[in-house]
Amino acid sequence: MNGTRVGYARCSTDEQDVVIQTEQLLTLGVPEDRIYIDRGFSGTTRRNRAGLDQALAAVWNGSVFTVTKFDRFARNMAEANEILTDLSGRGVLFGLGGSVYDWTDPFGRLFLQTLAMVAEFEANLGHMRTREGMALAKKNGKLKGKQPKLPEPARRSIRRRYAEGEVSLADLATEYSVGRSTIHRIIHGPETSRWSDHTPKLDVIFRPRSFSAPTAVPGFPDPDHVQGDPHRPLRRRAGRRDLGGRRCHVADAAARHVRQAERLANRSHPAGDRAAGHRGRPGSRRRGCGAGGDGLGPAGVPGLPA
């Protein structure tokens, strides 16, 4: 069958090579120009295996599709049965090492199906061991996900140099031997060091103050009532601030009226105030500013009670 064979070789990672498989296929009589190779692909799926697709397209009626080991061909029973059925329908035989098998023969079909079952079983065992090892590493804190391509000092340097306009994004990608998308994520992405695991997080809860109908002003918090209990008034202080940090203009206006009333009261009874020993607090009944006084207090000031 020299010259009628089409060979296929595969390795799971880019670090592996197919030198041994290629030499064995050449020994079996496969021409060098009819050996198709897939590098870095798993045998559990047919997806994206361009070498396998080319090898299946290169066979013809009466030729032999040849591999050195069955698991190099497939590790999935369903896909293996599908490919072998298609090859058999096109009159192509299946070569495993130095042996040739016919899919239409019951014994040949049984043997190939058994090999496919064993290959899938070995792949499933490998996946199970990998998941167990990852779970144990995650439990011990050794599995922290994919590490960044560049260390944090290099990332800070990239942000600083790009912000200062020293270099362009393409120059940084060439200098650090990474893709432009990686530099773009470093520059425009969040700075992970700013919110590290050692940074304390503050839980701030904002509780809005309630508004009461008699004294509330839209856009300002009610300075005279406490949240949840509107019947407990607070003493108004001149110049108090609202939740946004701005001065409350309503309180400022009231303070100005109070100061004006004090000045008028002091001009009216300077001697009486000194004799009484009062400080001139606005609205005090002791000064005679109320109904029982002499009527010369701040009763005439707008906005203040007589």
Rank of each mutant, 00 (worst) to 15 (best):
L93Y: 03
R131C: 04
G108E: 00
T114V: 03
N140D: 15
P148F: 01
R156W: 01
G126V: 03
M128W: 12
V118S: 10
L143T: 03
K139P: 11
G126D: 12
A78G: 06
F111Y: 13
R161E: 03
L150K: 06
S157A: 08
Q113M: 02
T104F: 05
E120W: 06
R156I: 01
A170P: 14
S99N: 15
R159G: 04
N124H: 08
L112W: 02
E79V: 05
G133W: 12
R75L: 05
G98R: 09
K144I: 02
G165L: 08
D102N: 06
A135F: 09
G98W: 07
R160K: 08
F121Q: 07
E79L: 11
L115N: 09
M128E: 15
Y162M: 12
M134I: 14
S88R: 13
G98E: 08
L110I: 00
K146R: 13
A119W: 06
G145S: 08
T104Q: 14
R90H: 12
R75Y: 05
A170L: 12
L143G: 10
G141I: 03
E122N: 11
K139H: 14
P148Y: 00
M128V: 07
G98D: 14
E164F: 09
D86K: 14
E152H: 02
L96F: 10
G91S: 09
R155H: 06
P153I: 01
E132W: 06
K139F: 06
R75T: 00
R156Q: 01
V118M: 15
R75P: 03
